[in-house]
Design a protein around this nucleic acid. Structure first.
Lengths: 210, 210
DNA sequence: CAAGAGTTCAAGCAGGTGTTTGAGTTCGGC
DNA sequence: GCCGAACTCAAACACCTGCTTGAACTCTTG
């Protein structure tokens, strides 16, 4: 309780660092790492161009940190949703948990949605970004397959993984495409009513093998 | 049969125009309109930078023409596939027709896949691009809903449209994301075996209302 | 108070951007 | 053979890119 001196210089520095990260996240969610400009970020954050070099070393490093932060928040949300699932959960339970973070982010907008869109872009914009981060999605995929293998009999694991990746891809598409923006105008309940049957149907497949 | 003089100047001009369009299409499919460079296109096409201004007026105009061409080829393929469907086609028939062009393009690669990816990017990269082209997708959507309304009873048309857009979104995601690249290594038959149950399942929804 | 670390800032750098220009080449029509 | 149209080209343009620099400012420490 002693060395709690408020070093105002460091606090101010942290604040501009955070503002830079927030501005970068918002712009990354809109245009991706390639469509972003150093001056855009610093203008939006109310900082000098040199602040990026000072706090992060380079524009690319700032983007990497912002993306990593976003991915962390994304995975936390997914992990929390999937972790609460019992192994004998129904397909609808699984679909609701799997799509839950995206549905809530769509309805909420703001930084939550920025996070989802930024992560979604990882899958399409920079080939090297995906290579570095691909492994991070394994856990959620395994969580889903665990439930699926009970709920969708007669379909082998590689195919269940494929269906999980399709469902994730669809959700990512919603985060980025105009249809997601239209969806975002609705309430959580309305979005669930529309989306969960689709996700669950994709999981189950047709004709069903069981 | 008379005025068929071969004007070599014009033919040569058309050839560089076509090379520019082909190079633009390939780069657009990889990085989208924002991630593209004039010199990249002209280098790849073996043309001078001024050729773009001469033949198209500007880089943006070249991209617009390339995207429009791609969209045309895309819609032709979809229209052909969906047009052959009988109103009483099964859900699997519909899914096979709906996903057919994408499946074949994934397996074929090359310019066919470039077309699909370029069109897919229209949905996410430039907000104004979608506004201009959104109407072009209505016909295919109506074709799908026509079959769906018979095969998926108890679900109203707006929801059927939503499911169709989800299916299209998933296919677009496959065109752009790494999972599509993995899929592309397989044969048409293998891709169909994996993908059609997912698309048909998304169309049908779960639990099925009928 | 002076020394110094942490942070911000205007200015400037080399290099890349899309576009224009004016001369140059190639060919058909007279 | 010569004119003019179609086309290509190197050079230059004004602007924008990410990044660095050296001086300033702010606050802590001694």
């Amino acid at each position: 309780m002693v060395a709690e001196k408020a070093d105002l210089r460091r606090e101010a520095g942290q604040r501009t660092r955070d503002r830079l990260l927030a501005a970068a996240l918002e712009l990354l969610s809109e245009r991706g790492p390639e469509g972003i400009t150093l001056r855009e970020i610093t203008d939006s954050a109310g900082a000098n161009v040199a602040a990026v070099s000072y706090h992060f070393g380079s524009l690319k490093a700032l983007c990497d940190v912002a993306i990593e932060h976003a991915l962390e928040r994304y995975l936390d949300a997914q992990h929390e949703a999937m972790g609460a699932l019992a192994p004998e959960a129904t397909l609808e339970d699984l679909a609701a948990a799997f799509a839950g973070p995206m549905i809530r982010s769509l309805a909420a907008g703001g930084q939550d949605l920025d996070v989802m869109r930024t992560v979604a872009r990882v899958g399409i914009d920079p080939p090297e970004g995906w290579d570095r981060l691909a492994g991070k999605f394994d856990q959620t995929r395994r969580d889903a397959v665990r439930v699926l293998s009970a709920s969708v009999p007669g379909v082998k694991e590689p195919e269940l993984i494929f269906r999980t990746r399709c469902a994730a891809g669809l959700l990512n598409w919603l985060a980025l495409a105009p249809i997601g923006a239209e969806l975002a105008a609705k309430s959580v309940k309305q979005i669930e009513r529309l989306l969960i049957p689709v996700v669950a149907g994709a999981f189950r497949g047709y004709p069903s093998a069981g």
